[in-house]
Amino acid sequence: MDPNGSLIFPSQVSTIAPEVDALFDFILYLSIIFFILVVGGTFYFAWKYRKKGEDTFTKDLSHNNMLEVLWTVIPTILVFIIFVWGFKSYMKMTIPPDTSMEIKVTGQKWFWTFNYAEGATTTNELVVPVNQPVRLLMSSNDVIHSFYVPNFRTKMDVLPNRYTQLWFEATETGEYNLFCTEYCGKGHSEMIGKVKVLARADYDAWLAGAGNAGANMKPEEFGAKLYKDKACFTCHSIDGSPLVGPSFKGIFGRTEKMTDGSEITADENYIRESILEPQAKVVQGFQPIMPTYQGVLKDEEIDALIAYFKTLK
């Protein structure tokens, strides 16, 4: 499990996490007390009043108003306390502070895209500064997804054609898991990203460099990086095995039969079109389910990917 976390929870990395854990512990201790009372009582009575000897009539103990009122009223009071406590922290995790910075999150099958106000775009990697409230404005391009970072103790569904929001303030630098928790089909369990919490200075440096990430790389290297970063691997292998989509191995120059019966040789134009308008020509035997990368990939990034594909023989 998480080496920094407890037996129950992963380490607390947001401002809200300690609060959630405290309420959990409170209920846990209460539960243990009541568990010992009820289940311990069951075992104790079972042993103490086990049948010893002959059949007998038993006592007429059919009710006791005092007791019955007690075990109705005490739990009622306790759960009321729990409700208020839970609701208070819920309000805290719902209303973002005014000082929050905003990042746009898009979920789609099966990766996350993050758009920064400064123009940077990342896939499956959310980079945020430490000790800074961050508000995520989220929507989905297809089905419902759910944005979940266990270390932050926050989660929110990402709906198509609706905005939802989620905010957090990370308290420690590091890399944390980001899961999709609303079932979204074949690649659901591959829709795992990272939240990278950086110190302020590192964050600023990263943001400045994020716009021209491929500047000092060879195109095919940059393409290989994009293949990983943009999570192409969820659906397209590079070892020849077909996943959700056709494999990229030997894709360049390969002739494939399309669903409409025509045959097409994959050249620059075809690959470009398939990235921007995936539904236009679909290879036979595959579902037309690839989302468009219009607006996600820049021209030079597409070129880099093509350069990378050429190396995959």
Binding site: I16, E19, V20, L23, F24, I27, V79, I82, F83, W85, G86, F87, S89, Y90, M93, P150, R153, T154, K155
Partner: peptide, 9 residues
């Protein structure tokens, strides 16, 4: 799980 803030997690 009934306590909202825990359920969120």
């Amino acid at each position: 799980l009934g306590a909202i803030s825990i359920d969120i997690h």
